[in-house]
Computed example of a mutant assay.
Amino acid sequence: DPRTYDQWGLGYSGTGYKGQGKTQPRTAAVYDNPYAWDARAAYVIGTRHRDDYRLFVSRDLVPDLEALAEQILRRRDDRGSSLRFATAGELQVRQDQLATAARATLRAALGKSREVRAAKAAREREQQRQQAAVEKTLSRHRAALTQSAQDRKKLAAAWRGGAEDTTALARLVTSGWEAARAIAGNPALLAALREEDPDQASEVEAFARQDRDQLIAAAQRRMPQRSAPPPTPAPEPDPEPPTPRMRR
């Protein structure tokens, strides 16, 4: 009764890989799953016989021999055979190699990270050094401009228009003009001044573009014009004392 005896199976049968390493006089195989057969499986199953080997294929799975060959000869990336798996010793060696490679990769990454951090720190130090140099140079030139303006005010208060005053005025104007040109001609100095005091930066640029001789002439015209003081009269001579008379 098939309803009672419904667990039928093939006698003396097993999977292809279960039979690997064995040799039988005659073997037969059933092509039951196209997805389970590939080049490795076909090689193992098709080499278990000594005299005769038969492969039974359902036409519902494979229409012809060309399709069967195409399905069997395909390669898979999975490990279909136990011969392809490593032993415990081989696995330990492989794991040691992977660990060594991982340590080497980690050391290289740490070394690269240290190099990157060191290079970044060096760039930051260099930027700080350059910034400090810019601030120091800008402070010196601004001090020269301020000192030139203050000295010109002092000179104006005592201006007499003589050659000595004219020479001193030319020297003070030249000093301020050179400081302005030094700032305007250096992009880093000018950018720092613009960030700190935009109005002064504009004045410095305008002052640096002018001609020095014209600046000196304009400064002389702005000096106060004072009349020369009247000459001091010469002191009158003391009167001569009277001559004493001689007595007889």
Rank of each mutant, 00 (worst) to 15 (best):
E203G: 15
R142E: 14
R194N: 08
F207A: 15
A163M: 00
G111C: 02
Q147R: 09
A99M: 09
L169A: 00
A132M: 07
Q147E: 11
Q97I: 03
W159G: 06
L155Y: 07
K120N: 10
L172T: 12
A182M: 02
D199F: 12
A188M: 05
Q97C: 01
L138Q: 01
R125F: 03
V134N: 08
Q130V: 11
Q128K: 14
Q210L: 14
A143K: 12
A163D: 12
R140W: 13
E195R: 13
A180D: 08
S139K: 07
E196W: 04
P198V: 06
G111D: 14
Q127C: 03
R142F: 01
A144M: 13
D96S: 13
D199E: 13
R129I: 08
D199P: 00
A188Q: 14
A158P: 01
D197C: 02
R140F: 14
P198R: 02
A119M: 07
G185F: 10
R123Y: 03
L138A: 03
H141S: 12
A158I: 05
A101M: 09
K112F: 04
H141V: 09
A119H: 06
T137R: 13
A157Y: 05
T137P: 01
A179Q: 00
A149F: 06
R209W: 11
A118L: 12
L145D: 10
A208D: 11
R114P: 02
L172H: 05
F207C: 08
Q210S: 13
E135F: 01
R152M: 08
A108T: 10
R212A: 08
A121P: 05
R142S: 12
T146N: 14
E124Y: 02
R194Q: 12
R107H: 06
Q214D: 10
A191D: 15
T174M: 06
L145H: 10
R125E: 15
A143C: 04
E115Q: 15
R194H: 06
R140M: 13
T146K: 14
K154P: 00
S148P: 08
A143R: 15
W177A: 04
Q147L: 08
